[in-house]
Design a protein around this nucleic acid. Structure first.
Lengths: 240, 240
DNA sequence: CAGTCGCGAATTTGATCATATCCTGAAACC
DNA sequence: GGTTTCAGGATATGATCAAATTCGCGACTG
């Protein structure tokens, strides 16, 4: 009970167990995942130490982790940037996502409890609200939470990690599309997915997820043909 | 002239500017991939700085990369160890490998040249020689080279990176089996794969690869039931 | 004369190390 | 038994060095 006795002033950061490199990793990861960084944008170590207020070593380690996950790209100049996906790489992403994510949903379906489904309904309501109000950031967060709240239940940590990496690669491109056309034209299959979960119909859930992914990818591939063609803003602190 | 552009002792590595953290990463990766480290074995930063002769920062970054790839496991004690796979995780690996690797082979098949196939025949001959002489290390290296010489030709860098990560997760367990039963009972489907490549039959190549993977995995799952049951040697410098 | 091309200095950025601090687990001690 | 101490190891800092890019200046060319 007398555990936080040495911090009488600041009880708010008493659980100091999280290392700085972990925090830095999460923050940088979210920046990539939710579109703070555009494809092709440069990322410098010293720039991150300034903007994130972290030391050099934690930033370096976070960059190494993200690089290993494919979320960042090490150029031969030893510089780091957000990858720009080619059409072929987008096809790879489509194949991998369509293979793995429905499988995760299928595994998760029999494990979903009523509480889980209720939480998903809550998330989906938030996603729809974000689409209605045009809040891109909230939409991206909600959509992510919807998918991974399902995938988490699959109890498949390896596949889950791979899918996380796929979303990290996909995030920047998705954000470009959303930034271009707002939240209009973002139909999803969350309703179908929820219905399948309520019915305990794993194949139907897998189908709904697959269709949802197909729609999301088609948004990027159709609209994103100019992503690679357009001149890329390589400024480090470009505000989107 | 006051610029020592060439190190007087080693002019042959002048054009190479490989950073130490990259070298450390590769060395540690190979140690994991080819069975120098057993599942469950502890890996310490300071131990690696000693055995690899590298500084602390490069070792740290290499560990972060391997951790992100699933090749190492960060325990909540902040300690690092080689992961021990559960049966369920082995199933995940089987699913992912059987999904992605035949696909890579299929993509690669139409791109294989006669020179590529000749190189593969050379590698397969070495694999067979290794099996015959019971040289486990040479077998593991050869088998790896055989598969990835094919996958490299697919021109699919994202899928390739994912499969690399799968092999990294699989490596330590495979090595345990080989260490237990030598190179006997290691039939492969390399001949069928080579025949399919010569015929330009992509589906047949995919089938051969799939069957090869199935055989390898069954070796581990059948023999490896005791891997998780057996007491794990957690010494850092355990010689296998 | 103007434009540009090259070359070297200055600046930015990355890589590495030595050191200091903090955590964790466990042995030792009351 | 519970607390204290201690050693091993992980974390983080800042300094220092090296590589690369940028920039400026001058000469050469059209």
């Amino acid at each position: 009970m007398e555990k936080p006795r040495e911090t009488p002033e600041a009880p708010r950061e008493a659980p100091r167990k999280v290392p700085s490199h972990e925090v830095t990793y999460c923050r940088l990861r979210d920046m990539i995942l939710f579109g703070q960084l555009a494809p092709g944008q440069a990322v410098t170590i010293q720039g991150l130490t300034a903007t994130l207020g972290a030391g050099m070593t934690p930033v370096r380690e976070a960059i190494r982790r993200l690089t290993a996950e494919g979320a960042l790209d090490l150029q031969d100049n030893r510089r780091v940037s957000v990858p720009v996906l080619t059409a072929g790489q987008m096809d790879e992403l489509a194949f991998a996502r369509l293979t793995l994510e429905p499988r995760l949903a299928e595994l998760a379906c029999p494990r979903m409890t009523g509480t889980d489904i209720a939480a998903l309904e809550q998330i989906d309501a938030e996603v729809n609200a974000a689409i209605r109000t045009g809040d891109v950031a909230r939409y991206l967060h909600g959509n992510y939470r919807f998918h991974f709240a399902i995938y988490d239940r699959a109890g498949a940590p390896i596949l889950l990690a791979i899918v996380q990496s796929l979303w990290l690669r996909f995030g920047p491109s998705l954000r470009v599309v959303c930034g271009r056309q707002g939240t209009s034209n973002l139909p999803d299959r969350h309703e179908e997915a929820l219905a399948a979960m309520r019915a305990g119909d794993a194949p139907a859930l897998a189908d709904a997820i697959a269709e949802d992914i197909r729609q999301g990818i088609s948004q990027v591939t159709l609209q994103g043909a100019s992503v690679t063609a357009a001149p890329v803003d390589r400024r480090q602190d470009a505000e989107i």
